[in-house]
Amino acid sequence: MMNILHWMKKENSGLARSTMELAEYEEKAGHKVCIKQPTEDQPIYGVERDIDVHCIHSQLNPRTYHDDRPKFMWMHGEPLSSVGNGVSMKAIVDLAPVTDAFIAMRREEIPIWSSIKRTYLVTKGINLEKYTPLDGITEKLSGEPAVLYCENWRGQRNPLYLCIAMQKVQEKLPKARLHLYNMQDKRMSDTFNALIKNNKWWTFIRSLQGPTKDINLLYNRVDMVVSCLFPLYARGIEAFGAGKAFIGPGYREYADWPYVCGLDPSSLANAIIKCWENYDKINYREWAEKRHNIKDTVEQSVAIYQRYL
């Protein structure tokens, strides 16, 4: 049994969700967990006592730099973006000397993070008790297929290419519909409302909505979730947990995944059509259980921590 301290900033982000899932399943595995913000003394969860291991998700309080406890930095971000935002990569490199190792969740990132610090690869898992198929869902969103976009819209993270892709999908699948959720920025909303009107996308876009409280319910109301992220895929794999297909240009680390696509409208469209035409050939829930179970992530990461105790 270990006492694990997670350093995490309170932010509405995939990083926070992933950290919380790790903490929950570490507890279920019998470990004691504490979550702290780097700049605050009071934990946001648990008790800081006899810490065995530090897990860095956002930053580490300098007070702990030399406490002789093993320190692991979880690489939630993507290396190019970390350079691109002008801050993260520099901070990661500066912090590397006080860490024992990095932990990454995508195989493609290993060469980059390994150039800075020894890096271990673990499964990118999700909470399969939370993201799960629901029985008796009758109020499905419109479309055959009903396609959902629900990324965290910001900057270049937007569904423009997916909207163009859906034009092509509609030529082959006239009943296909797109539902855009998690829109939180007014300028983005104005932009897409203008595009929908000018390009007559109202023929296939049926929703332009903000965040939803129950994201698992939303997954259960559609056929597939499509991301336009590249080269990462972030939290879109939650759809698999709900038993739905997930398509994303960054999802390419499994050789047996048949719907690999590129970040261009034509490639996205082909993947959506191919997925719909072969929809029942894959049990998406089983796919998640075998490849994206947070229990596996915790088992693998705890085994790494133990090597350093």
Partner: peptide, 10 residues
């Protein structure tokens, strides 16, 4: 813009 940008905080 990026949760990892929180790296800059301390």
């Amino acid at each position: 813009p990026s949760a990892m940008s929180a790296m800059s905080d301390v």
